[in-house]
């Protein structure tokens, strides 16, 4: 897991409701044998016009938002498909944080595993940050600190958030999740020997 402690950078407001992962990364960019270059597909159908040229009206095509590390979003961001290409594309495009009132649950979990922190925050506070960002033509920095679980708005307001302890520790340390689980082997083995006696069909498909 890629380490994350603190990021201070440009924030891009994209306050649309129910942004699904098909928009974040259309499926046609996912049929590939490696993750390399997935970032080029980020918001592809919003970023480019049908003729393939960049749409200058789209926020991530405008300076300084083309260098944003923080995305300001609206509710149910990342709903829909489980595709991990969504956080991968965001990360490859330079993002480390998405701030939204709520997230699609699968996307939320996928973010941590790709070095992105999904921060849940009421929409009023996100709108306040977005307004401050726009008033400074995007120059006002937003800071996200995972250790203290706080966001600092360009105007200096400090807003607390909660990240699940499970992921927070793994991100702060940059731990290997599989390795961590395997270190619980004795506990896992003990569970399975009890459980297999009680639910043998769960361990042997088609058991007679």
């Amino acid at each position: 897991m890629e380490q994350f402690v603190r990021v201070s950078g440009i924030a891009a407001p994209l306050l649309r409701i129910n942004v699904d992962t098909d928009q974040i990364i259309p499926a046609r960019f996912l049929v590939r044998v490696s993750d390399e270059g997935i970032g080029e597909g980020l918001f592809a159908d919003w970023r480019r016009r049908p003729d393939g040229t960049p749409d200058p009206a789209f926020i991530l095509n405008r300076q300084p938002y083309d260098r944003a590390e923080i995305l300001l979003a609206d509710r149910n961001f990342g709903c829909g498909s489980s595709r991990e290409g969504a956080p991968v594309a965001l990360r490859q495009s330079g993002f480390r944080v998405v701030i939204a009132p709520s997230f699609g649950g699968i996307f939320f979990n996928n973010c941590f595993r790709n070095g992105i922190v999904p921060v849940e925050m009421p929409i009023e506070q996100i709108r306040m940050i977005a307004t401050q960002v726009e008033e400074t033509q995007g120059q006002g920095r937003v800071t996200v600190d995972l250790r203290t679980q706080t966001v600092i708005a360009p105007g200096g307001e400090v807003i607390a958030f909660r990240a699940p302890s499970l992921f927070r520790e793994m991100l702060l340390e940059g731990q290997d999740e599989v390795g961590l689980t395997l270190s619980r082997e004795p506990q896992i083995t003990a569970f399975r020997s009890r459980d297999a006696a009680r639910r043998p069909w769960a361990y042997r498909p088609g058991i007679a």
Partner: peptide, 18 residues
């Protein structure tokens, strides 16, 4: 429930998921 590929890899390697 649906999971990401990395969660899928975790299940493959451990048959568990947090």
């Amino acid at each position: 429930w649906g999971v990401g590929s990395t969660e899928g890899e975790h299940v493959l390697a451990t048959q568990t998921l947090a």
